[in-house]
């Protein structure tokens, strides 16, 4: 395959991944690595590097829109970033020493888990119970309601959320993904934050978390310019287009289709990795 054709096809596929990721709310980053390794036979280290870069681009690109809505809680995000960035440093270091088969296996399991999380019915539990630690850390806020009122919320179980965030950071550094699925679970299941707050705050954190891995990825030679270029531009264009289209799309059907695709890729990666042991 000529280089030109390769760049164009990778760019278009990445655009599709970014589009589906934005429409389904699952993020495009999670399918970039399986796409590059399974379809284009790219080594997983190069794939992880390209994916991480696209994650930073989509997070910062979407953040401008989220910031305007005013749902994200900067204090909650910043405090938890201590956990995600330190987890990411550890994860990025693990990537440099872990065997390829182990990385692939963990990746496959994370894909299955992400699909499960996105298909599961979620129950929103908002509480303004006065959690002493959360109050000392000022992890509270109010969410503007459509009827013009305000929903007060206070974060709960901060240590559990912090621990889960460290794990999310580790997976982000290890696999070059945003770990949005784990971040959202930590915030809405463990810390009982409203969905709108957890999803937008999670997006706020993804770029910062990914930046913590970027330095080590660069020094380890994971960032191949000729590969990163089409992936980053494609995913960014796709996700920006996706967030514009979001209003009109059939989100539920899309979510199911994209989740099935992710399950298929997850199984493929697990089987592939298992055969390498």
């Amino acid at each position: 395959m000529s280089n030109l054709l390769f760049v164009v096809i990778v760019g278009l596929s990445s655009m599709g991944a970014g589009l589906l990721g934005a429409l389904s709310g699952l993020g495009g980053g999670v399918v970039i690595v399986p796409l590059l390794t399974i379809v284009f036979h790219v080594d997983i280290h190069y794939a992880i590097g390209a994916s991480l870069v696209s994650v930073i681009a989509t997070s910062s690109g979407a953040a401008a829109a989220y910031v305007r809505e005013g749902f994200s809680n900067i204090r909650v995000g910043m405090f938890l970033e201590i956990a995600t960035t330190s987890g990411a440093l550890f994860g990025a270091w693990l990537t440099t020493i872990a065997p390829t088969a182990v990385i692939g296996l963990v990746f496959g399991l994370v894909l299955l888990y992400s699909a499960y999380v996105s298909l599961k019915q979620k129950h929103e539990v908002i509480t303004d119970r006065l959690d002493a630690l959360a109050l000392r850390l000022k992890m509270k806020g109010d969410l503007p309601l459509p009827d013009g009122g305000d929903q007060q919320y206070v974060a709960q179980r901060v240590p559990v959320g912090f621990g889960l965030m460290w794990l999310a950071g580790l997976l982000s550094g290890l696999l070059g993904i945003g770990s949005g699925a784990v971040k959202v679970i930590a915030m809405d299941q463990a810390m009982r934050l409203p969905f709108k707050v957890s999803t937008t705050t999670s997006n706020f954190m993804i770029g910062v978390t990914a930046a913590a891995s970027a330095g080590l990825y660069l020094r380890s030679g994971y960032l191949a310019p000729g590969l990163v270029m089409p992936v980053m531009l494609g995913v960014l264009a796709g996700s920006l287009a996706g967030s514009k289209l979001l209003v009109r799309a059939q989100v539920r059907t899309l979510k199911v289709v994209f989740s099935l695709l992710i399950i298929g890729m997850g199984i493929e990666m697990i089987v592939n990795s298992a055969m390498r042991f």
Binding site: M1, S2, N3, G221, A224, L227
Partner: peptide, 23 residues
């Protein structure tokens, strides 16, 4: 890059690490 590198696609299937100029 596309104008200057028209040959076959680089081999990304085996990880070698990028040279110092890019790492």
């Amino acid at each position: 890059y596309m104008i200057q590198n028209r040959g076959p696609r680089p081999d990304y299937s085996r990880f070698q690490g990028e040279p110092v100029a890019y790492s």
